[in-house]
Every structure is written in structure tokens, then in C-alpha cells.
Amino acid sequence: METAELVALPLRERLLAMEALWESLCCDPTALQNLPTWHASVLNDRRVALESGRDIPSPWEAAKARIHAQAELMTNHAL
């Protein structure tokens, strides 16, 4: 799929595509070795925030439900 095709998708479908891409990266053992430097830095900062107790994680299903609800609101608002 070309980038232009992805960008043309409705917001909800783009979020679902993004979720599928992230899930595929999580299962790819080489993905972490090929992260851009800036991304590795962001991930490290987030890990430190979690370990220090500065950030409190949400269960993935709860976070995903929030994201989908926000996408739905944005889609309905755009109509």
C-alpha cells in the first residue's frame, strides 16, 4: 500500500493500520536493532519514567479503547 492510499483512509482505518504495524514490529526481533536514534531515545525516556513511578501505565486494552473512542469523536466531529 502506498503512503497516499494510507493518508486517504478515514481516521479510524488509519489508526487500525498503525496499530497493525506496531503489533508487527513488536513481533520482529530485528525491529529494535533498527530503530532510529531519536526513537530509541524516546523509548528509553519512557522506560525511565515508568521505572521511577513518574508515569503510570494503562492496560493495553484500556488504552486502545480510549484511542478508538477519541478517533470516533474526531471522525464524528469532522462530519
Rank of each mutant, 00 (worst) to 15 (best):
E2D: 15
E2P: 15
T3D: 10
A4S: 11
A4H: 02
E5T: 07
L6A: 05
L6V: 10
V7D: 09
V7Q: 15
P10V: 00
L11P: 09
R12Y: 11
R12H: 01
R12Q: 13
R14V: 00
L16Y: 03
A17Q: 02
E23V: 10
S24I: 01
C27Y: 03
C27F: 05
L32Y: 00
Q33L: 14
N34M: 10
N34C: 04
N34W: 01
L35F: 04
P36V: 02
W38N: 08
A40S: 14
S41C: 11
V42R: 06
L43Y: 00
D45E: 10
D45L: 14
R46D: 12
V48N: 05
A49L: 04
A49V: 02
L50Y: 09
E51M: 01
D55A: 14
D55N: 12
I56W: 02
I56G: 07
P57A: 12
S58V: 14
P59W: 03
K64N: 13
A65G: 09
A65K: 01
I67R: 09
H68M: 12
Q70L: 09
Q70E: 15
Q70H: 12
Q70I: 10
L73N: 14
L73D: 13
M74W: 06
T75R: 10
H77S: 15
H77E: 08
L79N: 08
